[in-house]
Amino acid sequence: MARRYGTLAGFIAVVMMLWVLLPDTFITARNLINVSQQISMLAVVAFTMTIVMAMNDFDLSVGSLASLSGITAAVLFTYDWPVAAALAAALVVGLTGGLLNGWLVSYVGILPFVATLGTLTIYSGLAFLISGGKTVFGRDIPDAFGGFSRGGIPLDWLGVEKLRIPALTVIALSVLLLVWYLLERRVFGRHLYVIGNNREAAHYAGIAVKRLRLAAFALTGVGSAAAGLMLASRVASANPTQGAGLMLDGIAAVFLGMSLHRRGEPHVIATFAGVVMLGLLDNGLTQLSVDSYVREIMVGIILLVAVGFSVLSARRLTG
């Protein structure tokens, strides 16, 4: 019981504290909508990261694959590719990158940590190579692409003026729904968790472990590409390193979510809670004018406390 709700209780306590300290600007529709948009890219990375982490695997290359996909689309824009074609090409880059990761991990048999560390470097190098190290911005980025992230679904019909659900938030929620369906409602997902518990047993039970791992990494790759495109749209520009921060935060969000689960498994709804936690902390502490470096230290401490607490209480349970 303590294990499952310790993190949640701590999180609610932090949110309440921020709410008390920022009575007028924290828990408001406007601010929460803002936060939902700010965390949307991290959310997509973390959701799809949950897929590989369900198998007890890792993908360190998500950030650089996001950068590579974003810059691919941007460079294609400079060659006057239509928006749809450039986006499709960028997603194919993500899919290919994910398949390479999956192949290295599952068919060649390199540890995911090492395999994706290698591809992290490769994708990052490719991003620099195709962009010449430069940022693509301004007139090279079509209005339809840069403007997308500024649009959204208006809420006038709800009687709320001047507010809308941002387009990026809608994408993140769709990805959440999709990953939830795959992991929680399909045999595919159940098999991934079986692999995560005991890969050998899964193999002997007749589960196509290799194929499933390949597929899982491919999905994570596509997710990274989507996040990279969302990021590029948000800043209406692309540079070869802009996705770099997504990887560590994405893994942190999954871990935070795992501390919410009874057996410490990664589940996408819990990951969602982890992402919201990180986003609200960032937003609240910025509003409180907490120094950005102190903020970073606090986020690290909160992660360690949450995960540490759940490990300790698990030990108490198992004796």
Partner: peptide, 13 residues
Amino acid sequence: AAVISRLEDAVTQ
């Protein structure tokens, strides 16, 4: 991208 987020936060604040 985080500059945009922090700009929005500053506006909220």
